[in-house]
Design a binder for these strands. Structure first.
Length: 473
RNA sequence: CGGGCUGUGGCGCAGUUUGGUUAGCGCGCUUGACUGGGGGUCAAGAGGUCGGGAGUUCGAAUCUCCCCAGCCCGACCA
């Protein structure tokens, strides 16, 4: 940005939430919906979401689950069947009481999550141990009425994927919940989103309503606060009992299933923005980017530059690069460059008459802002490698920022202080209920429990675990 | 639910205290010219039930009353 010019976005250090809002607007990502707490996802953001869906969906399928679709409307009575589930969700339910102009005999809940309906059908479909495991997933919208909405992070309606599985044994269910967390969620977040995430278990107070164990992927945002990016739950036999999901085992014994559920949502869009965004806007990691390279025609007097740029885009596309042409020469160069930076396109190729005469183009990296000339003939060969560099550098930057803002402490007071700026890691045995209350007074919560080497707790004794504490979204 | 604040072109705001001709400004938008390697310059335009209703007044964005919406803080929360 030219010195002396007013910044396009509120600088992050001045007001991070304001910056976030500015990015949503200026990068044309989303608008608020007409009903409080709802959002409109604009095309550029939706294209990113579609990329997330494609990547996550492929991993879910690789984990053996199949897609299905269950209804948006759920009989209210279903929610009554699992005590903790009702208690947890009733404050945020949207309930339909009128249909077709008539008062409904039984009110209908707009799904906040689908354990209950899916449980009902699992009970029908699972009869024998041969039907297990039953591995289902659905892509859907859900509604949870929110009092403090924030676009992408907490909205009353959001898009997500919810997996629901039934297993013959507790061990099998536990393994699968862990498998999803590691090979679907963590892998996607680290490898595609370039966001380093901590895997861990939620403490009892933070568990999903009705779960026996909740596993989580926690990321650190640019302001040091934590964001829960995805969760995978062991539901024990709570829902299986409530919905009578049972089977005959190989010995002819009637047994109750063990179920899991797991989800990631459009909240990841918020995570993407806040983990990688800088004062110039969004920075999209290349593996996620719907547009990896924008070829920008700087100026064109006779059409020759645009022709060359179009050929380049075609060649890149043939080489498997998601490239896009910007030949809007009637719009100033600076404006267009700024626009693509706001949108975080990883690489920008600038092509003008001057370049064309010299047989080169200028390649600008969004991650570090550097520009370098590359001969036109080399572009198709070199850009894929550059995209890999950008991908790596975004992950490296996010990782070192997180590690730099993570402090090991050995007292509750020190944890509260450290968590004001980032993550505080404290021995779990130091945190009794009173300590958790004390942290809460500084808006600090236990984000997850881990083994000392940063893995899921598994069977590790509780007094050997560490607690990651932070403020959170 | 309690306390505080705000509603004025698409967005952000001034004007309200002390009522007074035609309601301004920045950004954005449209058209044109010159431009063009970082939101370029100049010119000409479009766009308004001043949140809604009632009242006071010769006259209301401005004063009074009622209502609505949103924001912040508290309380409550996967």
């Amino acid at each position: 940005m030219a010195p002396g010019k007013a910044p396009i976005l509120t600088p992050r250090v001045d007001d991070f939430p304001r910056w976030y809002q500015d990015v949503l607007n200026k990068a044309e990502l989303a608008d608020n919906g007409p009903v409080r707490g709802t959002m409109v996802i604009r095309p550029y953001a939706y294209a990113l979401w579609e990329r997330m869906v494609a990547e996550v969906d492929a991993r879910i399928k690789a984990a053996g689950a199949e897609n299905a679709y269950f209804p948006l409307f759920i009989p209210e009575s279903y929610f009554q069947r699992e005590a903790e589930h009702v208690e947890g969700f009733s404050p945020e339910l949207a309930v339909v009481t009128v249909g077709g102009g008539k008062e409904l005999e039984e009110p209908v809940v707009v799904r906040p999550t689908s354990e209950t309906v899916i449980g009902e059908y699992m009970a029908k479909w699972v009869q024998s141990y041969r039907d297990l495991p039953l591995l289902l997933n659905q892509w859907a919208n859900v509604v949870r009425w929110e009092l403090r909405p924030r676009v992408f992070l907490r909205t009353s309606e959001f898009l997500w994927q919810e997996g629901h599985t039934a297993h013959a044994t507790e061990e099998d269910a536990r393994d699968y919940a862990e498998h999803i967390l590691r090979t679907v969620y963590r892998d996607f977040m680290v490898e595609v989103l370039a966001i380093p995430v901590l895997v861990g278990a939620k403490i009892a107070q933070e568990r999903f309503a009705g779960a026996t164990n909740t596993l989580t992927c926690e990321a650190m945002m640019g302001d040091g606060k934590a964001l829960q990016m995805g969760t995978s739950h062991e539901l024990g036999q709570n829902f299986a009992r409530a919905f009578d999901v049972t089977f005959l085992d190989e010995h002819g014994e009637q047994r109750t299933c063990w179920t899991t559920s797991w989800g990631v949502s459009t909240r990841m869009m918020g995570g993407l923005i806040m983990a990688h965004g800088d004062d110039d806007g969004l920075r999209v990691p290349p593996r996620l980017a719907a547009t990896q390279v924008v070829v920008l025609v700087v100026r064109d007097d006779d059409g020759s530059v645009t022709d060359a740029a179009q050929r380049l885009v075609d060649d890149l596309a043939h080489g498997g690069v998601r490239a896009r042409l910007d030949a809007r020469v009637e719009t100033g160069f600076g404006r267009r460059a700024t626009e693509w930076e706001l949108k975080g396109v990883p690489l920008r190729v600038e092509l003008g008459p001057r370049d064309l005469a010299e047989g080169q183009a200028v390649v600008a990296r969004r991650d570090d802002g550097t520009k370098s000339p590359v001969s036109v003939g080399d572009l198709v060969g070199r850009l894929p490698g550059l995209l890999d560099d950008v991908q790596r550098s975004l992950l490296a930057e996010a990782t070192s920022r997180r590690d730099g803002a993570t402090v090991l402490v050995d007292s509750v007071a020190a944890a509260a202080e450290a968590a004001a700026e980032g993550f505080a890691v404290v021995p779990w045995r130091l945190l009794d209920d009173a300590a958790i209350d004390e942290l809460g007074r500084s808006a600090v919560t236990v984000r997850c429990l881990q083994t000392p080497d940063g893995d899921l707790p598994g069977d590790t004794p509780a007094d050997e675990l560490i607690a990651v504490c932070a403020r959170s979204y």
